[in-house]
């Protein structure tokens, strides 16, 4: 049984039309469910949200009467200001990839690189958000202290400064480790198998034997 002998039969099967949809809608409604298009859409939404929020946060940081809230808002503004261009750059790279005329191998290499970069950025972003949220929590405690606490609660709060720092750093460490582990698990669940498959295929392309 040889492939050449069956060529016409297989071609006949493959050439059967798969759709009756009108082609004319394609230029008008380019709504896509492709992997990269969705990824880019998410990145643009995040970037737009950051850019939208930053002026408000800066305004709040400038106007706030409470110093702790000023620190929080200013920190968050800086984080968003730094992250927005990173995400925008990645989204731009995806756009260039979408519009580029790649060969299959080049396309796979670029896709793999984009996905790995996205994984890395996702982890970095989540890890960065943990200390920011911790600062927020501390800022809230300082800004809005509980005044009518009972004796027991008051006793627990009589801690030395080094003890408070120890608790803060300990909590931060635990939260960052947990975040790192869960984010890593999630991003691997989403793209891990696909990336492994792509890597295996690309390896076989480089080494046909």
């Amino acid at each position: 049984m040889d492939l050449d002998a069956l060529k016409s039969g297989i071609n006949n099967r493959l050439e059967q039309p798969v759709t009756v949809m009108s082609r004319t809608v394609v230029c008008k409604v380019p709504r896509s469910r492709g992997l990269l298009i969705r990824l880019r859409r998410n990145l643009w939404i995040e970037t737009a949200l950051y850019l939208l929020c930053t002026p408000f946060m800066l305004f709040e940081a400038w106007r706030s009467e409470n110093f702790s809230m000023t620190i929080y808002n200013a920190t968050f503004s800086v984080v968003m200001f730094l992250l927005a261009p990173v995400f925008a750059r990645l989204a731009g790279r995806i756009t260039r990839h979408i519009h580029a005329d790649h060969s299959v191998q080049e396309g796979l290499n670029e896709l793999l690189d984009i996905l790995k970069t996205y994984q890395r950025r996702y982890l970095q972003f989540n890890l960065l958000m943990v200390p920011v949220c911790m600062i927020y929590a501390v800022a809230l405690v300082i800004a809005f202290p509980v005044t009518d606490m009972g004796n027991d609660q008051a006793d627990t709060l009589r801690l030395a400064t080094w003890q408070i720092w120890l608790i803060f750093i300990g909590l931060l460490g635990i939260l960052m480790l947990t975040t790192w582990y869960l984010s890593r698990w999630w991003i691997h669940w989403l793209y891990g198998r696909f990336i492994r498959d792509l890597e295996a295929e690309l390896k076989s392309v480089d080494d046909p034997e």
Binding site: V18, T19, M21, R23, V26, C27, P30, R31, S32, R33, G34, I98, H99, A100, D101
Partner: peptide, 18 residues
């Protein structure tokens, strides 16, 4: 298959300018 067909057409249209 229909999804993929549409996806390829969308992608081709996006890249056609280039």
């Amino acid at each position: 298959r229909e999804d993929l067909f549409q996806e390829i057409l969308c992608q081709a249209w996006r890249s056609y300018a280039g």
